[in-house]
Structures are given as C-alpha cells and as structure tokens.
C-alpha cells in the first residue's frame, strides 16, 4: 500500500514538473513574440554583403594577358578564353572571354591566381534570370559595374549583417550611418601590426 502511495505521489510530482516545464516553454515562446522580427524584407531591405563576399566575378578585358591560369585553376575549367597569336607583336590577343555563372561555384580560385588581377569578386548576388543561357556572361557583361546594395536604389534600405553591428546592438534598423562595428577594423589591425614592427 505504501509503495503504491509512493508511486502515486511520484507520478503526481512528475506531472506537476511536466506542467511546469511546459509553462516555462510557453513563457519563452511568449517572450519571443515581443522581439523585433529578424527577417529581412527582401526587395525593400537588403543585407550588405560582408568583406570578402564572393559574388559575381568582374573581369577587366584590357588587363588580361590570356595566360589561361584561370582555366587551369578552375575546378571545372570553366572560363572560356578565346585568343589568337599576333605574329607581329608576338603576343596573345584576347578576342572573347566568358564565364558561365550557371555552372560556376564561386570558389574564387581564378581571382586568387590571376597574375594581372584582371579578375575580381564583386558583391553582386542577384543573378536570377529566366533562361539559364543568360547566365553565360561574356566579357562585356563581366565588365559591367557591379550592382551595390548601398546607394543604388532609393527604395532599397541597406541593412548591416550581425557581425557589423555595434557592440550589444541586435537590430540593424535605425542605425546611425557612422555607427562603429564591434571590435577592431582590419585597417586598424594593420596599423597596429606595422607600429609593432617599427619598434
């Protein structure tokens, strides 16, 4: 009898505990309701891409020496370099250059290895199109000025990513433009290192 009573008591205790935990969970959920939404209202608000963001690749036609290093380092040999040998100047002359962004994985190897820095990463990421063949960018399309979230469209409100917010701030809205992000900036780090080196 005593054991049975103990079992009933334990059972009740467990039930009360379960109810308590569910209540705590409800309180947490309720607390979330009064927080500001963390979602970005995409066409009207856009996140500013971070440093070293790997977006659409920019190509400068005049700098290119048609060395085809980009093709060799590409995991799938994607860039198409169409050149011909100019016998008079004994130099390669570039005719066309194209990268198909429908196939590109944006690994950035080509940018890394380009000896003349004619390839560079941009922060443009809105590449959607109705036809996948439109993603095959030729040298003209690759040379266009990249779209930037900042100051390009008055309808778009650029928002900083979490790592670029001041210390303790979680909400990118209504932030003063000169608000400093948490931690040291890269140029400050560089300065520090150089001053250390000078000593």
């Amino acid at each position: 009898m005593l054991k049975f009573l103990k079992q009933v008591g334990d059972y009740t205790k467990e039930a009360v505990q379960a109810a308590k935990y569910i209540g705590q969970g409800l309180a947490v959920t309720f607390d979330h309701m009064q927080r500001r939404p963390i979602t970005v209202q995409y066409p009207y608000e856009k996140l500013i891409p971070s440093e070293r963001f790997r977006g659409r690749i920019h190509f400068e036609f005049d700098k290119c020496i048609s060395c085809e290093v980009c093709v060799r380092v590409c995991p799938i040999n994607l860039p198409v370099v169409d050149w011909e040998f100019n016998k008079e100047t004994k130099k390669k002359k570039l005719n066309h250059y194209s990268i198909d962004f429908g196939v590109c994985i944006f690994c950035g190897n080509c940018v890394e290895y380009c000896p003349t820095n004619c390839l560079s990463m941009t922060e443009e990421y809105e590449l959607a199109s109705y036809d996948r063949h439109e993603l095959n960018y030729d040298n003209v399309a690759l040379g266009r000025l990249p779209y930037s979230v900042m100051n390009s469209d008055p309808m778009v409100m650029p928002l900083r990513e979490l790592a670029y917010l001041p210390k303790g701030v979680m909400d990118p809205h209504d932030l003063p433009a000169d608000a400093r992000r948490a931690g040291k900036l890269p140029e400050e780090l560089l300065e520090e290192m150089e001053s250390l080196k000078a000593k």
Binding site: H32, M33, R35, R36, P37, I38, T39, Q41
Partner: peptide
C-alpha cells in the same frame, strides 16, 4: 500572424 510573431517573422503583410 501569431506563428510569425513567435518565430520573429512578420507574417502576411
């Protein structure tokens, strides 16, 4: 709406 608020979204707008 309530689901959106509980998940820090906006919901239908």
């Amino acid at each position: 709406k309530i689901s959106a608020a509980a998940q820090q979204r906006i919901g239908p707008e």
